[in-house]
Design a protein around this nucleic acid. Structure first.
Lengths: 191, 191
DNA sequence: ATCCTCCTATAACGCCCGTTCTACTAGAAC
DNA sequence: GTTCTAGTAGAACGGGCGTTATAGGAGGAT
């Protein structure tokens, strides 16, 4: 167990710094457009260190997406817990998204949508993470809304909001999506 | 005016064949992952021909997106014209999308979303086409639904359906989005 | 017949990228 | 103090890509 190895780029193990650098660069510039050397330089480690910790660039991409998934899941769960009514819990995904967006994390939309668009080869190991992320999202939304159909429709609005954030052609995609979702849910329970 | 130059890859001018090849390859494999030589080979023209007709790969990307935009606009307009009620006209974007998807054009979602995710540099000339496409989409939807807000909400559902088609984690994203949009529009007019 | 335009064919240039090799270093564990 | 682990540094390999240069051919227009 190492106490501290290299204080140059201050905190964390080499592995953590690599993931943090990938998180920043893959998100901002895209996966294909980010050479491993740039991520390695940003993390302040040697090139070989990447290959000691991951299978290669693909492995780093997988770790990056898993890291995103964990952070997002945690962020969303906090919002769900903070909500009081059943309706607010079902809509908490939009509150989490707004907080995410306000913190500047989403200038470029959703990491998983971007990755899905970029990695056209479905055999790429990252697709397993993408599929898992979206499946868990749908499962949780179905649970919170009380029906698979309602969960699916809220998910559609959530993903529409993500595109709105990516392209930036709408004033307030998250607010509009939340309002539309509320309408959809009210209709679902009045019936 | 040439009558016919080269019958090897049967039809169209060199320019048209280049765009057709780009349309196929950029869509299937992604823009960055498609080398110009492959598009050139698919079109059955010489490499230099690409540079006679376009400013380079970027120019071909722009032409590719413009071509997509025109085809989509035509396809959608046909569905709108075929619809009878105001409601069906407002929802015709989903019928157009379903026809598009059934014809196998959308195995990988929306060309504009993919391009937006891939081209992280907003200065890329393709972004002008992306912005124009989404702006026209929103304007037409607002016109058909009768309000900017309703248009925006239908657009969110449309884009959610696109992501559903890209990732393939939903059974029937287009049908669910259409049904949710109908709910949203009914609520909008009862109020 | 000559010109002009469009297109072809091939090769090359310069650059970037993912990965690997080799040899080395510094601290922790024992 | 020796051993082990994790990391470092730098160079190199093999391959791919966008673009350009050169030289030439084929067909309609005049």
């Amino acid at each position: 167990m190492p106490t501290k190895r290299k204080p140059t780029p201050p905190r964390g193990t080499a592995r953590e710094r690599l993931i943090a650098a990938a998180d920043e660069l893959f998100r901002r510039d895209g996966i294909a457009a980010t050479p491993v050397d740039r991520a390695v330089g940003r993390a302040g480690v040697a090139t070989m260190t990447l290959y000691h910790h991951f299978s290669g660039k693909d492995g780093l991409v997988v770790a990056y997406l898993e890291h995103r998934h964990e952070r997002w899941t945690r962020n969303w769960a906090e919002r769900t817990d903070a909500a009081e009514s059943t309706m607010d819990k079902a809509l908490s995904v939009f509150d989490a998204l707004r907080a995410w967006a306000d913190s500047g994390e989403v200038e470029r939309g959703c990491a998983f949508v971007d990755a899905a668009a970029e990695l056209t080869d479905r055999e790429h190991p990252a697709w397993a993470v993408i599929n898992r992320h979206k499946a868990e999202l749908l499962a949780r939304l179905s649970e919170l809304t009380g029906s698979a159909e309602a969960g699916e429709r809220v998910l559609l609005l959530y993903e529409g909001a993500l595109i709105g954030l990516l392209i930036g052609h709408l004033d307030d995609p998250v607010g509009q999506a939340r309002a539309a979702a509320q309408t959809v849910l009210e209709r679902a329970q009045h019936q």
